[in-house]
Design a protein around this nucleic acid. Structure first.
Length: 270
DNA sequence: AAACAGGGCAACCGCTGTCTG
DNA sequence: TCAGACAGCGGTTGCCCTGTT
């Protein structure tokens, strides 16, 4: 089965994002969320591929991104998780709030891996990795300036704007993120079947209803379709994810099933 | 001061899994 | 059951920056 390209290649910008593009993307997501990445660039007036927009948002513009060097504790956690999970960067990222899978992957390949190869197990020695001062912060703006001589430093000019966006978007995403993080950030059926039902109904509902209606409120929770629920039931024989110790949360999921209440809190209990 | 090499990170690419109709 | 469409994942690449000679 062939696959259509994710976007028309002609006439689309590539490479480093300009501050103006960033601002457009953030403003659009603030207003509408991102129910459909493919349609987003057109609707937001961006000459970018939907995948590119998604990546930019997830890896750079998202308000809850933590910038700066990894602490020794974070690195140790990455080492330990990598030992347990392998190269499942998104699963590792799920355990490090504010860090993206891409960032963790880069840090692993550029710093941690080398240190481990040199005999440092990464857990005993709590020294932070050596860093080039402000290099990371410089890079993105420098790249933009290279692409656009009139570009300004995002870190100064846009941060207040982005911070303002943070509240609205974060609130909107929070409920869904807490519940879905484990699923969405995992890859492959094996992992999902170990930790989650194959199709958490909330994700299914959110994803597809959001696509159809293209509005943010519908991109939050919704009751799963009959078909989805039947498949889920067939695979698990039980409407709850089989997590030990999570039944209170699961009971809320049951309530969610029965009530279809979109406002129910589904935060996973720790 | 200039040239070069390597490091570091953002972005891209190709693929997979899962959905709906 | 199948085809088409989508989001998301991990691997890879390109380019800028920094340190060294």
């Amino acid at each position: 089965m062939g696959r259509a390209p994710c976007c028309e290649k002609e006439g689309l910008r590539r490479g480093a994002w300009s501050p103006e593009e960033d601002q457009r993307l953030v403003a659009y997501i603030q207003q509408n969320g991102h129910p459909n990445w493919r349609a987003l660039p057109r609707q937001a007036g961006l000459l970018r591929c939907g995948k590119s927009c998604r990546l930019r948002w997830i890896n750079y513009l998202r308000p809850d991104i933590k910038r700066g060097n990894f602490s020794a504790d974070e690195e140790a956690l990455v080492v330990r998780l990598h030992r347990e999970l392998g190269n499942r960067w998104s699963a590792i990222a799920a355990q490090l709030p504010g860090r993206t899978d891409n960032e963790i992957k880069n840090v692993w390949h550029t710093h941690i891996k080398k240190r481990l190869e040199d005999g440092d197990d990464g857990e005993d020695k709590k020294k932070p990795r050596k860093s080039k001062p402000a290099a990371a912060a410089k890079r993105s703006s420098a790249a933009k300036k290279a692409a656009d001589p009139d570009a300004v430093d995002i870190s100064k000019q846009q941060q207040p704007f982005l911070t303002g966006v943070a509240g609205a978007v974060q609130q909107r995403e929070q409920r869904r993120d807490n519940f879905l993080h484990g699923h969405r950030t995992s890859r492959g059926p094996c992992f999902r079947r170990q930790l989650w039902p194959p199709h958490p109904p909330s994700r299914v509902g959110a994803h597809h209803q959001g696509e159809k209606e293209n509005n943010l409120s519908s991109a939050s929770f919704s009751r799963p379709s009959k078909k989805v629920f039947e498949r889920w039931w067939t695979l698990w024989k039980w409407p709850f994810p089989p997590w030990p110790g999570t039944w209170p949360g699961s009971l809320r999921i049951l309530f969610f099933f029965l009530s279809g209440d979109k406002n129910i809190s589904l935060c996973k209990e720790s």
